[in-house]
Simulated scan of single mutants.
Amino acid sequence: MECAQCGLDLTAHRGCREVVLRCPSCGAAYDLREYSAEMDDDFEEEMGFVPMDRI
């Protein structure tokens, strides 16, 4: 998945309450919903292990 601002590959960042996609170059952050159509099986498998009830 590529950054809409600069075109570089996005990385997933896990916060306390959410996971966002962030560009390592320009720092832009995107909600996962914006890229849900582009997520492949490998990405979904990795995100499957993110605990979502950390509160």
Rank of each mutant, 00 (worst) to 15 (best):
C3V: 07
R54F: 09
I55S: 08
G48K: 01
G7D: 07
E18C: 10
C6S: 03
A4N: 06
R54S: 13
R33Q: 08
F43M: 14
P51H: 13
C3A: 05
F49N: 07
S36K: 10
Y30L: 02
M52T: 15
G27Y: 08
A12K: 05
I55D: 14
C3Y: 06
R14Q: 14
A29S: 13
S36C: 14
E38K: 06
G7P: 04
C16Y: 09
F49D: 08
L21W: 04
M1V: 10
L21M: 14
D41C: 03
L10F: 00
I55P: 11
G7H: 07
R33G: 08
E18G: 02
L8I: 06
C3Q: 02
A28C: 05
G27A: 14
V19R: 04
Q5V: 14
C23A: 10
E46V: 13
A28N: 00
E45M: 13
G7S: 03
E45W: 10
H13M: 12
R33E: 13
I55M: 11
D40F: 00
R14G: 01
Y30N: 01
E38R: 09
A37K: 04
C23D: 02
A37T: 06
M39G: 01
A29T: 07
A12P: 00
G27M: 11
Q5K: 12
A12D: 05
F43R: 00
G27T: 05
L10A: 01
F43I: 15
D9Y: 04
V19F: 04
S25T: 08
M52D: 14
R22I: 01
F49I: 03
P51D: 13
G7Y: 09
M52E: 15
G15R: 08
V20T: 01
A37L: 12
A4T: 08
E44I: 10
L32Y: 06
C26G: 09
